[in-house]
Amino acid sequence: MTDPRIERQWTTRLRKRVEGTFPPEKVLPDTQPSYVASWIYVFGVLTLAALVMVIATGCALAIMGPTWWHVSGLGHYINSTHLWSVEVFFFAMVIHLWGKYFMAAWRGGRSMTWMTGAVTFLTSIGAAFTGYLSQTNFDSQWIATQAKDGINATGAGSVFNVLNLGQMLMWHIVLLPLVALGLTAVHVILVRKRGVVPPFADVPEGVVA
């Protein structure tokens, strides 16, 4: 039977906890509540799909390095796909945010879901910004010299030097994607764990409004 030594193991305890919180039917559900019936719900999954495209096109650009796209037609096309993925990503994400706000989707213990989404949005702005700085063209020169004043004024400029291409490229392709992807993972896991917020309803009996 169960060996108490095994039961006490960190590994065992973690596995049981994950199994309890995320049973397979929650991670990969095959039904959802009947009130989930509006086009507004597709913008979440569209944001995710656009994020997949952003990462994929960014990886494609990474293969030949940061300046290849200036001298290759194929490279320029891949750069275009990266740009438009980002435009689609923000397009979908902002509509997703509007929709979730007007559904008050933080209700019922879902505040962490809302907050991780909001922080992902802010992180994405930083990720896109460092991307603009990493283009190695006129745009990145101008944006860097303009942005330095704002970022310096916050004090962050003393360590986050927007004029340092190498530093900005590293933030763009390593640090900020890691944070954005990590936050997105937590966000999606929370959505699966808590489910989609139910509609506003009448006050249930037995509670004080």
Binding site: L46, A49, M53, H76, N79, S80, W84, V88, F138
Partner: peptide, 19 residues
């Protein structure tokens, strides 16, 4: 999204003014 992105890229490309 893949189709949308490939199409937009084909139609409009992306800017690249020389430094």
């Amino acid at each position: 999204v893949l189709i949308v992105v490939l199409t937009l890229s084909f139609l409009f490309g992306s800017p690249d003014d020389k430094p």
